[in-house]
Amino acid sequence: MRRRTPAGLVEAEPGPAHHIEFDGRAVPALPGQSIAAALWADGVLAWRTTRVGGKPRGAFCGIGACFDCLAVVDGRPNQRTCLLPAEPGTTVTTQEGHGRADLAV
């Protein structure tokens, strides 16, 4: 028997998949998915390291309330990937700390 999937459950026939770029590699995304959803679908659970402990973090609340899923998106740090759509060509980079290393003096 074919494995059950979320897409199979709702009989989804999505538009053609495209790709976003995550840390320099192509990750597939379906139209309408958030960045966090595309990363989960690819088995990626972490795309940030914390400011104090350097610990990996990813999506936690999934609804924009917890801010754990922050990443650098198209060059802009501190973007909530659970809210932002994965558009064709969106570039996502793992965010280290506060994501403003360029402002260090």
């Binding site: 897409a7 989804a12 958030s34 959803a37 659970l45 936690f60 609340c61 999934g62 609804i63 659970c82």
Partner: peptide
């Protein structure tokens, strides 16, 4: 990573069809 809220798992599934 991999510890998510119950509602978050629901939200990501309902909106993005992912687990």
């Amino acid at each position: 990573p991999g510890v998510v809220t119950a509602g978050g798992a629901q939200a990501m599934l309902k909106a993005g069809l992912v687990l």
